[in-house]
Amino acid sequence: MILSARRVGGLALAILPAPACAHSPVPGIEGFYTGLVHPLSTPAQALVVMGLGLLLGWLDPKRARVAFAVYGAALIAGLLFGGGPKPYDPVLFATAFAACALAALLSGRLLPLICVVAAAAGWGLGVVSVPDPGPTRDWIITQAGAFLGAALGPFYLFGLSYYLRQRFPAKGVAVALRVAAAWLAAISLVMFALLVAAARLPA
């Protein structure tokens, strides 16, 4: 379909970069948004989300349901019981490496192993998303946002990956997904090593 000049103009207006000055209509809802984007707020968390999405994207929906159930349960457990001091980035990078390497090399085989990685990812993302102590209502709202954000990220990536493989059955798509996973695995491993090396340095 050919875009008309009016539509193109409208699109250009819509994508114009401008500061967002709106305020939230619901008191306390800021915490929800903070929680929602929290899984993408640090490289470690973003890599876990992307790695898990790519890993689960190799599964058919029936098997993916099992892995998502494990992930969701671990995420809730992490959010509820994972408070306290947590230098958790090395664990997240290691989990991201495991997820990405499995996505690159095994392409959906070994469901039990995938579930173990999903559980680790869920627990890790849950632990680092626990908000600082505060009013119970705000705490719950922020936790709800964090749960939704951490659940939606891998879910959308799973959907995208699955859709691409179904829509474009040519081998190139599958290869691209494997290569992307391999690149993310490499980045995760390097970051893991950097943190371990930094921890070994004398203060």
Binding site: A104, V179, A182, W183, L189, V190, A193, L194
Partner: peptide, 26 residues
């Protein structure tokens, strides 16, 4: 050809990262 065409570019970065880890850890 396949499967080497995708396997080699997948293996390389992962193992390269292992090498980077060795370098970082000294």
């Amino acid at each position: 050809g396949a499967p080497a065409i995708w396997l080699l570019p997948v293996v390389f970065p992962i193992v390269m990262a292992l090498g980077a880890v060795m370098g970082i850890l000294g």
